[in-house]
Simulated scan of single mutants.
Amino acid sequence: MSDSGLSRFLGGSPAQVILRLVFLSFVVGIILSALNLDPLDLVNMAVNFVERLWDMGFNAIGRLGNYLVVGAIVVVPIWLITRILSMGRTR
């Protein structure tokens, strides 16, 4: 990869990007320390959040399935009756 390609990929010269990343890492480290947060705690919080969303999603799918079955108990017989009655009219 050429220097211009690398610079384009990184968003600036490699030295500038490294300095920017070091500075931002330092600032974020200070903020996290002030908030008494550990990076592993953040990872665990993110994993727990995704797991809760995942579980809620499957619970929602289960509820949708229940709604589908309850609705089908009413809709399918009505549809079947209307189809049977319309067959008698067409002949």
Rank of each mutant, 00 (worst) to 15 (best):
M1P: 07
D3C: 03
D3E: 08
D3Y: 09
S4W: 05
L6N: 02
L10I: 02
L10Q: 02
G11E: 03
G12M: 06
G12D: 04
G12Y: 04
S13G: 01
P14S: 04
V17W: 00
V17S: 00
I18R: 05
L19Y: 02
L19R: 05
R20M: 03
V22T: 07
F23Y: 10
F23S: 11
F23N: 09
L24F: 13
V27S: 02
V28C: 09
I31T: 11
L32E: 04
L32S: 06
S33L: 13
S33R: 12
S33F: 12
A34Y: 14
A34R: 11
N36V: 09
L37S: 01
L37P: 01
P39C: 03
D41M: 04
D41H: 03
N44F: 06
A46T: 11
F49E: 09
V50T: 09
E51M: 10
L53P: 01
L53I: 15
W54S: 09
M56L: 15
A60T: 15
A60K: 10
I61C: 07
G62A: 06
R63D: 09
L64V: 13
L64R: 09
L64D: 07
N66G: 12
N66R: 12
I73K: 07
V75I: 12
V76F: 14
V76Q: 07
V76M: 13
L80D: 04
I81H: 03
I81P: 04
I81C: 04
T82G: 05
R83V: 13
R83I: 13
R83L: 14
R83S: 11
I84L: 12
I84A: 10
L85F: 11
S86K: 15
M87S: 15
M87K: 15
R89D: 10
